[in-house]
Design a protein around this nucleic acid. Structure first.
Lengths: 238, 238
DNA sequence: CCTAGTTACGTACACCGTACGTAGTGCGCT
DNA sequence: AGCGCACTACGTACGGTGTACGTAACTAGG
């Protein structure tokens, strides 16, 4: 009468050890770190149970003692990089603080290009996520709006950061396993875009396409978008 | 001296047929429709080359005559649902028009819950995407800002729609292959969140948690976020 | 002490994407 | 007219995946 749990489970609610039996050889942090190492070096698709187990030097199935499903491994990974957020002392300038938080999130995503792909699709209430949320709320203390509005602002900011980073990073991640470079891929896609625009079927798009001179400064675009968003929540500007 | 193309390729740049040899048994639209049907009914993970081929009634490897890589199949799928956008005549009220566009995008994602997962990670210049982009630019004609700012706004709106829908939809998609329901999963996760908040480690989060009475109206939150975003780009409000 | 709950892990299964080889088909060129 | 070649179709096979299940070793609680 064993049977696996036919009921959902949050990995964070499961204690790391239960006291009985041999001492576990690894901690959750060990496993997360190994998976992150692999994902950073070889891409998210290289993160397989076998590969992670090999990195740790244990049998594949032993991993399942720590992580009931692979998806939980993903949750460990996201939580692990969440620890890279610097939870600085709020300065009292909520705009500056939130900008700093957003820039940091963006930096983390560029350090770990697989994060955006995992972020959408995760419920995201891991310990480090909660800590970061609390930190953001602390930064927003000076902002005089209801708490609900604050969490909405945080969600919106995070969403925008993720969106921008994901779009920018997607090509990098995709070309990782391809025999051609990111630049080649972009060139081909841009060439197609150019050919389509040249048909005249998209006049306004063509105009926008022509207007821009030189490559887009994504960093600047990103910062502008953030400023706009903060404006929209700034009571001093309405 | 055959060898596969060692150079990137955009599926949309490849012609549907080349004239020589037997007539293809299917069109790209057939294949996309079959894949969409499977994804809608059984989830994105059920979309395998074998499954799609079976749905079409042909051998697995025959698919590769139409679609060089599985990722291209994904692009076909995204483009196919992109056709569901109603390209209405702009009313002159750019805010209302863009709201309508966003709501429609959201509706499409709820109809095809696998779309968000594919959206992030795709470069996204398929024919229907281009058409939709052009349509948005048409809606933004009355807005007196540079074309670059308009595309930024469109990107931002789409990003936010995707993010919000993704978060909301993730649980549905995830529980599809699980032996428990979406509600059960959500309940377990909320219980964990509550237990964490109750530890007192996250006072501000706790306050925000307590403040809300009853379940969150995601639709309303979404609409508020959109309004804020539009505010951020509305010259009349600055 | 003993036993129940763990950890560890080898084996096995069903499924995946897709490289490759072969056979048949019909357009384009000479 | 007829040859050749580019194309479609598709069976087989390979190396990978997540993970269910069974067995052996181990240790804390009663």
């Amino acid at each position: 009468m064993a049977g696996r749990a036919a009921v959902p489970e949050v990995i964070w609610a499961r204690p790391e050890r239960t006291g009985r039996g041999p001492k576990p050889a690894f901690t959750r942090a060990d496993i997360a770190a190994a998976a992150v190492r692999i994902a950073d070096a070889e891409g998210l698709d290289a993160v397989s149970m076998r590969h992670v187990a090999a990195e740790l030097g244990c049998g594949t199935m032993s991993l399942y003692n720590y992580v009931p499903r692979k998806e939980d491994l993903y949750e460990l990974m996201v939580d692990a990089v969440g620890a890279e957020h610097e939870l600085f002392e709020p300065t009292g300038d909520w705009r500056a603080d939130m900008l700093r938080n957003a820039e940091e999130t963006r930096a983390i995503m560029y350090r770990h290009t697989w994060v955006p792909r995992l972020m959408s699709g995760l419920f995201g209430f891991s310990p480090n996520t909660l800590r970061y949320l609390e930190h953001c709320l602390a930064c927003l203390e000076p902002l005089d709006v209801p708490a609900g509005t604050k969490t909405e602002l945080i969600a919106l900011l995070n969403g925008v950061v993720t969106t921008y980073a994901a779009n920018d990073i997607a090509t990098i991640e995709r070309t990782r396993s391809m025999p051609w470079s990111e630049e080649e891929e972009n060139a081909v896609r841009m060439a197609y875009l150019g050919s389509q625009v040249a048909t005249g079927a998209y006049p306004r798009l063509a105009a926008a396409f022509m207007e821009q001179s030189g490559p887009v400064d994504l960093e600047a675009v990103f910062r502008r978008a953030l400023e706009r968003l903060l404006d929209a929540y700034d009571p001093g500007l309405r």
